[in-house]
């Protein structure tokens, strides 16, 4: 398969330097009194949240707590029932990108063309191709540009999806449990990749996950949503790159899990400078 493909004259340069194009400014997020209900069911209740530009925020919570809805509202894929959303300076379209739990690649488009789906419009075909190739190299798949998605492994597909999300140099990257379907080792690899691209491109990242240890490995700040409310807001100031299984991480994980399973957390910490915990 690989050898027969003529469309890949590029050497696989893992973690190539970022594209020459100027990076978008990272976007700050401001949510005020955000509520969303579906019929009678209130999914989000009066959420106030401020995310400074460039922060890596993780949102954890049980299934159905409203964390995915929150993410969809940030992306403009869903509208709040009431409340205000501000992302960046308001130019939301084109600046935010999302990675879903599934790779959602177009099966009828080659890998490179799938990445081009995310390329900024109106920059010409050649520029789009070059940017897409650079993004593929950034995720270590520069040599797979000419292949069909169906021949890639699950982890590789998700890396193509990451390249598609990054190619337009977004100011906000929303991650909707993108690693949930991967095996444990691929998952750790992907976490490292995500962290490294975030550190280089410095977009604002919002990761929704079930996995508390994943949230702690990646995020500057972890918030817990329970029954549509912000239940916990925890800054994670561990130095990067983080070592999995360090005592400090275990302690934080314990704190979040205790809160999730109903034991009263000893202290609810409040991140400096951010309005917290709406009283609903």
């Amino acid at each position: 398969m690989t050898a027969s493909n003529p469309a890949m004259p590029f050497a696989p340069t893992v973690l190539a330097p970022v594209q020459s194009r100027a990076a978008s400014e990272a976007a700050a997020i401001d949510l005020r009194g955000l509520s969303r209900s579906f019929g009678d069911k209130q999914v989000l209740r009066q959420v106030d949240l401020h995310v400074p530009a460039g922060q890596f925020l993780a949102i954890v919570g049980r299934s159905g707590c409203g964390k995915s809805t929150l993410l969809r509202i940030l992306l403009g894929l869903d509208a709040p029932t009431s409340g205000a959303v501000a992302v960046g300076d308001g130019r939301r379209a084109g600046l935010s990108r999302i990675m879903f739990q599934e790779p959602r690649l177009l099966p009828w488009a080659r890998v490179l063309d799938n990445v081009r789906v995310g390329a900024p419009r109106g920059e010409g075909k050649a520029a789009g191709r070059a940017a897409a190739q650079a993004a593929l190299e950034q995720v270590g798949l520069g040599d797979r540009a000419g292949e069909w998605p169906s021949v890639l492994s699950g982890g590789q597909k998700q890396r193509v999806a990451l390249a598609r999300a990054l190619v337009s140099r977004p100011s906000l990257l929303a991650l909707d449990e993108p690693l949930g379907a991967l095996d444990a080792l691929t998952r750790i690899e992907m976490q490292n990749l995500l962290e490294s691209v975030w550190r280089r491109q410095r977009f604002t990242a919002v990761l929704v996950t079930h996995d508390v240890s994943e949230a702690l490995a990646l995020a500057d700040r972890v918030i817990l949503i329970e029954e549509g409310r912000l239940a916990l807001d925890l800054p994670v100031s561990l130095p990067r790159p983080r070592r999995r299984g360090s005592p400090e991480m275990a302690r934080l994980e314990g704190e979040i899990l205790d809160r999730l399973f109903g034991k009263p957390a000893p202290v609810e910490r409040v991140a400096a400078g951010a309005p917290q915990e709406a009283v609903a």
């Binding site: 990108r97 879903f100 959602r104 789906v117 995310g118 598609r164």
Partner: peptide, 11 residues
């Protein structure tokens, strides 16, 4: 899901 992706990516 692909249609949703396409919309989210501004097609």
């Amino acid at each position: 899901q692909l249609v949703e992706m396409a919309r989210a990516y501004g097609m």
